[in-house]
Nucleic acid binder design. Structure first.
Length: 417
RNA sequence: GCGGCUAUGGUGUAACGGCUAACACUGGAGCUUGUGGAGCUCUCAAUCCGAGUUCGAUUCUCGGUAGCCGCCCCA
């Protein structure tokens, strides 16, 4: 008994039964439709990557403690991808001479993080990554932030349901330089900014005063020319977004983001519902990442969002579509063990695009109807010797109970209409 | 990595330290061999693991494990 395998999935990962997967796949389908309407193409790669891909960038603690990393039988160090951006940068760099820039690429796939599961955080989750590669700051940033907004709106979200908080790494860097902070105090200051939303205003002000310099003050004063210039560019971005129909983007000095590779605009999208304070989307400009593989830098901007927080958001706001669906349109019942007639009908109907399910059990016809109802299949017809002879089907609409006799050639158009 | 809460059939719940661990739903079989979801009957199925206290532990204690919720971190 001790060796009986558990039916539980591995810690922090999920099983997707057909009803679960239908829901998730339905959301993905809608996301794909929106992205493709903007000319974005889906790419993909293996979840297995060389560990070195993550070691030259990002943050040491994340790589060492928060990834699935192991050594394969050939002594190669392998990591299950925790994010897609390095893979994208690697792929872009590898074919930099032949790809038609700018690239509009997206990927929907699983990511792995070795950390303790809690609300909205699992060890495997699905993430959508959207990137625009090969254009400098400016219109590309506007398109990317607009896309984030468009995805939410295509699910029916209103601008009052979410807010886009924007900051700029260049602005942070210029202000920090002007404030004369050394690297260590800079790190502490950015951490403080990151925690601002979790602090009371008084606590934040007090912590801010205890720092050796105050970059935020320099931004607010606007007297330092280099800082004022970056702030002006950020304001221009927000104005351009508003002009393009994205009215809920705001400057937020508390947006910092954890990764070192961001070089320009950074942003996060939040639910305006205070019960759900987690970031829904996050991203920014990373102009230096592709150059890590050699060659000239290729500028890029993008963002990503995970399925767990996204679906939480949709549910919270009553925006999750039903995605009601059944495994088939028509259930062909078989009164006897001879199912050849039913199979013949099924083949003909499938060629006309009907999803047909043929009963293969020995259940009574009445149980077969119950089975069809339980499965949510909308139409039922029994096929036995009578039907084989006449070529007529008695098509029953299970939802209403109505039954009509149709020649088999008319069944497909009736069901699909 | 740190802390809090929880753990009983597949699911949701019940059981002053004391009888054969109860109920509902679900699953299976039947009433019903060419047409409905109901109803009725029967039936499968559980105290997370390991110590301890006790005459006796689902119940109390400790440890482990798992889940949830926070913290850290967050690509």
């Amino acid at each position: 008994m001790a060796d009986t395998p558990s039916t539980e999935p591995y810690k922090g990962v999920r099983d997707f039964y057909p009803a679960d997967w239908r829901r998730l796949a339905g959301v993905f389908k809608k996301v794909r439709g929106l992205l493709e309407s903007y000319g974005y193409e889906e790419y993909n790669a293996s979840p297995l990557e060389r560990s070195e891909l993550y070691e030259s960038k990002g943050n040491e603690e994340i790589i060492n403690e928060q990834t699935y990393t192991f050594t394969d039988r050939g002594d190669r160090r392998v990591t299950l991808r925790p994010e897609m951006t390095p893979t994208l940068a690697r792929m872009v760099s590898a074919k930099r001479r032949e790809l038609p820039f700018p690239l509009r690429w997206y990927n929907i796939g699983n990511r792995f993080r070795y950390e303790r599961p809690q609300r909205g955080r699992l060890r495997e989750f699905f993430q959508t990554d959207i990137d625009l590669v090969g254009l400098p700051e400016g219109d590309a940033d506007i398109e990317i932030v607009s896309l984030a907004s468009a995805i939410l709106k295509t699910f029916g979200a209103k601008e009052t349901d979410f807010i886009i908080r924007i900051n700029s790494r260049k602005l942070l860097a210029a202000a920090s330089k002007a404030a004369g902070l050394d690297d260590e105090s800079l790190r502490v200051y950015w951490q403080l900014l990151d925690k601002r939303s979790k602090m009371t205003p008084e606590a934040f002000e007090e912590a801010r005063r205890s720092m050796p310099g105050d970059p935020l003050k320099i931004v607010e004063d606007g007297t330092e020319p280099a800082v004022a210039e970056e702030k002006r560019k950020l304001d221009a971005l927000i104005d351009a977004l508003a002009a393009g129909g994205v009215g809920n983007a705001v400057y937020d000095p508390g947006i910092v983001r954890g990764f070192d590779y961001y070089t320009g605009v950074i942003f996060e999208v939040f639910d305006t519902d205070i019960k759900n304070p987690r970031a829904l989307f996050g991203g920014g400009r990373y102009d230096g990442l592709v150059a890590l593989f050699g060659g000239d830098p290729i500028p890029a901007v993008g963002f990503a969002f995970g399925d767990v927080t996204f679906i939480d958001f949709l549910e919270t706001h009553g925006l999750l579509p039903g995605f009601a669906g059944a495994q088939a349109d028509l259930y062909l019942g078989t009164p006897t063990a001879d199912r050849t007639a039913a199979q013949d009908f099924a083949r003909a109907l499938r060629e006309q695009g009907v999803r047909v399910f043929v009963n293969l059990t020995d259940k009574s016809l009445s149980d077969q109807i119950k089975d069809a109802v339980k499965r949510g299949i909308p139409y039922f017809a029994a096929v036995g010797s009578e039907e084989a002879k006449s070529g007529m089907l008695k098509l029953k609409t299970l939802f209403t109970g109505a039954e009509e006799s149709l020649p088999v050639d008319d069944v497909a158009s009736r069901i699909l209409s």
